[in-house]
């Protein structure tokens, strides 16, 4: 299965046409796929809270948005999630590469990984965790759920899901 294409297909099938990204090594393929799709406007942002602002505007302008980012960005976006996305009650699927999990080669990534789920739980953000490639089958339902309940929803995708880092 081409996971990058499957994710992008699910976004398009759910009418998501405005996607902002800040890269992570694990996300390189899906970002490239999104960039190549005519039915998605891809706007790279420089910081994830900026990206969430763009998404909030796009939503109010009638487009379904999504953000693709690394889990370290939870540390950047708590205020924006609480005072913009949640306070005004806006839907926002967040496809998050979950660094610092099993098969992680970079020790520093573990430092935010250990806070990631606790922060998301503290924020009452519905959170899904993809460990295996087949978990992607849930993505379509998660996207529908997000736009049903008008909340930010986190989809954590770990290194195992993306196929590891090769021979490191």
């Amino acid at each position: 299965m081409d996971i990058d294409k499957k994710i992008t297909d699910d976004l398009v099938a759910n009418d998501i046409s405005f996607v902002t990204t800040v890269p992570c090594k694990q996300l390189a393929g899906v970002i490239e796929e999104i960039d190549n799709r005519d039915d998605i406007f891809h706007i790279p942002s420089n910081k994830e809270d900026e990206g969430m602002g763009l998404c909030a505007g796009a939503w109010m302008g009638g487009k379904r948005p999504a953000i693709i980012m690394q889990n370290t960005a939870i540390g950047v976006t708590i205020n924006t999630l609480a005072t913009l996305i949640q306070y005004y009650r806006m839907p926002l699927p967040m496809l998050i590469s979950y660094r610092g999990e099993l098969r992680e080669p970079v020790a520093c990534q573990v430092e935010m990984a250990i806070h990631t789920k606790a922060l998301l739980a503290q924020m009452n953000i519905p959170t899904y965790h993809f460990h295996q490639q087949k978990d992607v089958e849930e993505l379509d339902m998660i996207l529908k759920y997000t736009f049903m309940c008008n909340k930010p929803v986190a989809i954590l995708t770990d290194a195992n899901f993306w196929g590891g880092y090769g021979d490191q």
Partner: peptide
């Protein structure tokens, strides 16, 4: 008028996203 009640800094980002969407 869309009034921001919090989230210092994002008026320009929200405005740009809105302008790009319609």
């Amino acid at each position: 008028n869309f009034y921001m009640l919090g989230t210092m800094g994002l008026a320009s980002s929200i405005g740009l996203g809105l302008a790009l969407a319609q």
